[in-house]
Amino acid sequence: MPARQISARALFAAKCVLFAALCAPAAVAAYQLPAQADPVEFIARESGITALRILALTLAVTPLRMLTGMNWLLRLRRMAGLFVFSYAAAHFSSYLLLDLQLDFSALLEDIAERKYITVGFAALVMLIPLAATSADWAVRKLGGKKWLALHKLIYAIAPLGVLHFLWIKKGEDWGEPVVYGAIVFVLLSCRLPKIKKILQKPLYSLNPPPIFDGGKEKQINPPPISDGGGRGGETQ
């Protein structure tokens, strides 16, 4: 059975590995950049798709935790979330700085008139409060409940990101956005109470945790795993 928690040292190592892995797309893109005919389009595309991929990764943490009981995964999620914001910010900045060259009237026209930019911009704006409240002090200040409610914004951001991607595509080139859409749909469905129950059940019924209780062993019902949640996981 996979470990529910890991040692501080192992967690640090996992964080280092994840950090490197999440930096890798930027490094690869930087390496490929000099060979690009249109670096503006290249930076925008690579940063955008990377943000969407890491966003899917952050959404996968909770279902994975429910399935495997690996609660320590939760402690990697904040870093991944901040990377989503960083790539999305790079995506927007490259568009504003390199493509529009700080033409703010063109920016406003784009946001108002081009629906793929409207939804993309909305998703970016919603990411800002999430990034701003990622630190521990913000959780304390807001209180766990409020913090959790705020961070449920990600459930809106993810579909908007997919829609942004879908609407950029031309012709009938829908394959990729549809795949991303399906992944996000499945990951969000895991949050539905009914599906949550199914995901949590098998783990505990197959591997009931032995409890010592006055000399005889018995099974207890598992504590429900809160979603989104997360922060609870860290204090265990």
Binding site: P34, A37, D38, P39, V40, L98, E109, R114, K170
Partner: peptide, 16 residues
């Protein structure tokens, strides 16, 4: 999808 008022002229330099 695009304002057609201006364009990125892809030339010899790094940035269009």
């Amino acid at each position: 999808r695009w304002s057609q008022a201006s364009e990125r002229a892809i030339g010899g330099g790094f940035l269009p």
